[in-house]
Design a protein around this nucleic acid. Sequence first.
DNA 1: CAGTAAACTTACTGACCAGTAAGGTTAAGG
DNA 2: CCTTAACCTTACTGGTCAGTAAGTTTACTG
Lengths: 215, 215
Amino acid sequence: MNDTRRRRVPRPVREQQIIDAAIRVFAKRGYHAASVDEIAELAGISKPMIYLYLDSKEGLFIACLRREAARLVAAFQDAAGHAPSPELRLRAGLLAFFTFVTEHRDSWVVLHRQASELSPAIAAELTQARRAVMAEVAGLVRVGIVESGGPAQAGEQDADFVTYALVGAADSLTDWMAKHPDEPPERITLRLMNMVWVGMRNVLGGEVWAPAEDG
Amino acid sequence: MNDTRRRRVPRPVREQQIIDAAIRVFAKRGYHAASVDEIAELAGISKPMIYLYLDSKEGLFIACLRREAARLVAAFQDAAGHAPSPELRLRAGLLAFFTFVTEHRDSWVVLHRQASELSPAIAAELTQARRAVMAEVAGLVRVGIVESGGPAQAGEQDADFVTYALVGAADSLTDWMAKHPDEPPERITLRLMNMVWVGMRNVLGGEVWAPAEDG
DNA sequence: CAGTAAACTTACTGACCAGTAAGGTTAAGG
DNA sequence: CCTTAACCTTACTGGTCAGTAAGTTTACTG
């Protein structure tokens, strides 16, 4: 039992431990219902340390957001960066996303829109993180549209629309994953690509869904 | 000025006024940050009335949830109930949804997943409402799959998947709407149908998106 | 083995807020 | 007009919790 119960840990390490604990508590209770005391206890530390290192409850939450958002965006970019075509990049990015959510469920819960009841500073942080992801996706979609023969300039608004739909779908499929724990991220990714990419190509290619007026 | 500042309003009317005010405050602040005092003030009434009529803060929130969820589900069902084909029913339902969100933005914000930090009773209520909508959509999707020539039994899990993706997309497009206030619900509905329904048909019809290995 | 700075603690306070006790006021029916 | 019940209020309490003051302990450094 050398340093398993190590007291007196250097600041950078403690900060990460505090953030680890905070993510678990914020995920479980939500921002307002979470108490700093509970986070301190889970981190195995006393409350003033949190205020010394992270300033305030809001500062602590922002630190959680920043760290996990950076991790998620990095996972997406690393995965998407190396594939040769936009389709494959999107596939790789989505796979990285679903894998991240599987492996860091609490982080995802914290990132996943608690925005409504938060202070402007926090809301801005969340918006920032979401925008980064959306921009990434939108870029791929836009290129995909152009390469699929879509109009280069009309793609602007259309790409944005598709991106919102796609991100929202991925978002929601997160819940579907929880109901089907044995379904691997790969299969989910493939299914979603099937739905969205094929549909998108058809839409941009002019194959329009018509109301098919009854008669 | 007959009864514009009517005092002494009968209970059922007051209850609705209280719920109206509560929805606005809950939407603005979120459940925990909202104070009953503020709701009471906005409703033009004193706090004990809320406790007399709605029992508790939680009871008040549940009342909001129930009323607005019922309205949303009703709008969806009324719209979807009369069209002849599943495609048209889904189209009508989505249109009703986007219209509802446009016209009752606060209600939508309240319904729109604050579930994480809520008591079990409230979370159950929200889950209930969401399940009702999902079941409605899933039914349409399932019929649509079968009518599009998909496998009758394999449709079970697939329909669920498509439903999650579709609901999530609609959900997220809600934010897109906020960025494009001049875009009418009709166009949004059409675009989404284009993306999802066409894509879904292709998936079920065996037209699979292939990774298209590079070379 | 000092001296010192970083790491850490106990024990508080002040504000906010859900919920309530105790009673005041007006409409509606006799 | 008088009763009664529905409607409504002022003024409080008790608990929770973010944030802090003041001091203690351990590890590193010369």
